[in-house]
Design a protein around this nucleic acid. Structure first.
Lengths: 152, 152
DNA sequence: CTCCTTGTGTTGTATATACAACGATGGCGC
DNA sequence: GCGCCATCGTTGTATATACAACACAAGGAG
């Protein structure tokens, strides 16, 4: 039932089918589940993702982490600064030019281990919320996008 | 090939399978396509979504728009303020208590019509990027979440 | 060696998001 | 009427994100 107030049919679609609106809704909802689970630890899911990537692949250049996560370099820069202040990350020696090599500190590793069970709970909660079908689909969609971004 | 630096297997999963990371990646990537298409008009996809909802259902209470879009009331409040300054939205008479009833102005309607073709292009571009399978899946996943949120 | 270019990070500015605290409005019991 | 209370919106503060401009380092052209 198109509204009398939207003579332009595209405007109706903008309010119902917009993929940006949909992905943003998903992102907000899903993120809040993880952040709520992690709040007692004082870490956000974004920081935890960075920490996990550096733990797995470090010492690694800051920009490489950003590229892997498809994050803007400025977002990464400010996040890294906060995480260094928390003592979870530190700069490793080496790195060509202005590169900043990152590695996880002992306290960062402890944080990862403390966060792991809470992350698992959040992951399970979101999987249940979405159902297996849509959870798998999100992985597929994200993989597709990630691969396209990697081509460039 | 688990890293020697991640003795905790959950940490490996955190860096590869985290649904928050995935949805945030999707949201950032998809949003940027729309915002790039809309930049010449000086409107963001978030604002356009609000405008479309108010156009279709207005006059409507600000909080109702927030609920429909599952947005935080404070995010909505500040967005509405900017959009009022742009002259796209205005407060309609009526509304119980402190409710703010919103409606789209003439200039808001013109913005919607100018933005419509660009929105369609962006929507097509993202659909092509994802492929029909994953684009449909995003709708399914978002619908599922939206319905769960509506139950509460 | 000097200049230029390129790669990498940082900083400025604006919007988006979340949570908590506050403020305002009107209803309701009495 | 008065005070309590529930609802709704705004404001404070912090993080997340994006884009542009800048800063810095290294290497190459000449």
């Amino acid at each position: 039932m198109p509204s009398k107030r939207s003579p332009n049919p595209t405007v109706d679609r903008m309010g119902r089918e917009c993929l940006a609106m949909r992905t943003r809704l998903l992102s907000r909802t899903v993120t809040s589940v993880y952040d709520e689970a992690l709040r007692p630890l004082g870490v956000t899911i974004g920081q935890l993702n960075i920490l996990a990537v550096v733990a797995k692949r470090g010492p690694i250049a800051q920009g490489e982490v950003a590229q892997f996560l498809s994050m803007e370099k400025s977002t990464m820069s400010r996040n890294v600064e906060r995480m260094r202040q928390h003592g979870w990350l530190r700069q490793a020696p080496g790195g060509a030019g202005r590169q900043v090599l990152l590695e996880v500190s002992g306290s960062g590793r402890r944080m990862l281990n403390r966060a792991a069970p809470r992350w698992s709970e959040a992951q399970a909660e979101v999987s249940a919320l979405l159902g297996k079908r849509w959870a798998d689909a999100l992985h597929g969609a994200a993989d597709t996008i990630w691969n396209k971004l990697a081509e460039k």
